[in-house]
């Protein structure tokens, strides 16, 4: 890769966990991205906010619980996590339901941030 080049990457997560693999595999991308010293942010919109709903226990469905990984993101210096306000409200959730510290933003605010990115990857 080109040395020293820093781009702004935003990962947009709009799908719930477990029903499909997108949430887990997207998280794997984010972890790899951390090694590239890029400017990384994550946006959780629509059903994507369910990825952060704390208290996931996947024993009964015999699937790996990857929720602890979100809590590890901070160790990788990934701490810009934006959650869509309207999505929380539509799902009866609040910021207190999130398993990690997040910044709650309106769709329009997320839209403004999106405009400032170099790369937007959505899963």
């Amino acid at each position: 890769m080109s040395e020293g080049q820093i781009k702004k990457f935003m990962y947009v997560n709009r799908k719930a966990p477990h029903g499909t693999i997108y949430a887990l595999e997207s998280l794997e991308v984010v972890l790899i991205a951390a090694a590239f010293d890029q400017d990384v942010s994550l946006a959780f919109m629509d059903d994507g906010v369910y990825q952060l709903k704390k208290g996931c226990n996947t024993k009964g469905i015999e699937v790996k619980n990857f929720q602890p990984t979100y809590r590890a993101l901070d160790d990788y210096d990934i701490n810009k996590l934006y959650v869509e306000k309207e999505a929380l409200e539509a799902r009866g959730l609040t910021e207190e339901d999130m398993c990690v510290p997040v910044e709650v933003l309106t769709r329009a605010e997320i839209g403004k941030l999106m405009e400032t990115q170099d790369i937007v990857l959505s899963f």
Partner: peptide, 12 residues
């Protein structure tokens, strides 16, 4: 799916 709705509300 709500993709268009969310897009319209997000797009600047």
């Amino acid at each position: 799916r709500p993709a268009l709705d969310t897009c319209l509300a997000t797009a600047q």
